[in-house]
Design a protein around this nucleic acid. Structure first.
Length: 273
DNA sequence: TGTGTCACCTGAGCGC
DNA sequence: TGCGCTCAGGTGACAC
């Protein structure tokens, strides 16, 4: 599940390979991946454009192009962008992009939830998820005061609120669970019940969990691979996610798995109050 | 406006 | 061995 650290790792691994390259030809094998414009227009507009930079916003990858266009990619659950010398022979290959050096950027997506957009730079706010997105948690804009202000308005369980991209960008199930463990907060707690000190602790924990994920080049349980097709290593360092039934690394209590807001949620009932 | 629920989708894992 | 069921989860759409 690509969250902020995974998407940023993909961005970094692709940056040197794609910068300055021109997209020669686009092949769409599953049209519904392309949300805006239609698949035909997407291919026509993208072909012949040079890539000027690679950015990221939350879980979105933003490929900036010459001529004032941005190609936006969201990998959702199982999307992968793999740079390779050939078009990969993979049953879940959904799009393929031929570059001017003869190499290919392959978009593989088993569950086909991934999405792509190609829009003029001044129309990127047509992508609702991008337009309403909260602050980048690894930027200066993500201050304790800002976090506190955004949380104050909410009444739901803290785990559910952490997954809301309007509150903070880029968190998904893995890093929300890990941040709550680091902060020692029960994921079922109503946000309104958190003290200022607990919110400060959570703010710090979000940053710590994401930085660790980034340092370890992402978390791979099944599908996530970086732009070179390499797995991440963060799964070996997780405290709670995917560890239900195992002893807590801190106190030895069994990690339990429950559902919060419809999401599988792992936590330590002793360390998280 | 805020919140909860469902659909989208495919493969793995499990019980029978 | 094969079948059917459940689960995994990011996000948009929809109902209340």
């Amino acid at each position: 599940m690509p969250e902020l650290p995974e998407v940023e790792t993909i961005r970094r691994s692709l940056e040197s390979k794609l910068l300055g390259r021109t997209i020669e030809k686009v092949y769409v094998f599953l049209e519904r991946i392309v949300k805006k414009p239609g698949a035909g227009e997407f291919c026509r507009l993208l072909a012949g454009r040079k890539i000027t930079s690679l950015d990221r916003r939350g879980k979105y990858l933003l490929v900036r192009l010459e001529g004032g266009y941005t190609w936006v990619v969201h990998l959702r659950m199982t999307g992968q962008l793999i740079y390779a010398p050939e078009k990969l022979k993979h049953r879940h290959l959904r799009l393929a992009f031929l570059l001017d050096n003869g190499h290919w950027l392959n978009f593989i997506d088993m569950r086909t939830f991934g999405s792509m957009y190609l829009l003029p730079d001044d129309r990127l706010d047509e992508i609702r998820g991008l337009a309403t997105m909260g602050p980048e948690p690894l930027s200066d804009r993500f201050s304790v005061e800002e976090f506190y202000r955004r949380l104050q308005k909410r009444k739901r369980a803290v785990k559910t609120v952490l997954l809301d991209q309007m509150v903070v960008a880029g968190l998904g199930n893995i890093y929300a669970d890990e941040a709550l463990f680091l902060a020692g907060i029960d994921p079922r707690r109503e946000v309104a019940s958190l003290s200022k000190t607990e919110i400060e602790r959570l703010h710090q924990a979000v940053v710590r969990a994401l930085r660790q994920g980034l340092r370890n080049r992402g978390t791979t349980f099944r599908d996530y691979l970086d732009g070179a097709g390499e797995k991440g290593k963060n799964q070996y360092y997780l405290n709670v996610y995917h560890r239900s039934g195992k002893p807590c690394r801190r106190c030895g209590t069994e990690i339990v798995k429950i559902r919060v807001g419809g999401r599988g949620t792992s936590f330590c009932p002793n360390c998280q109050k």
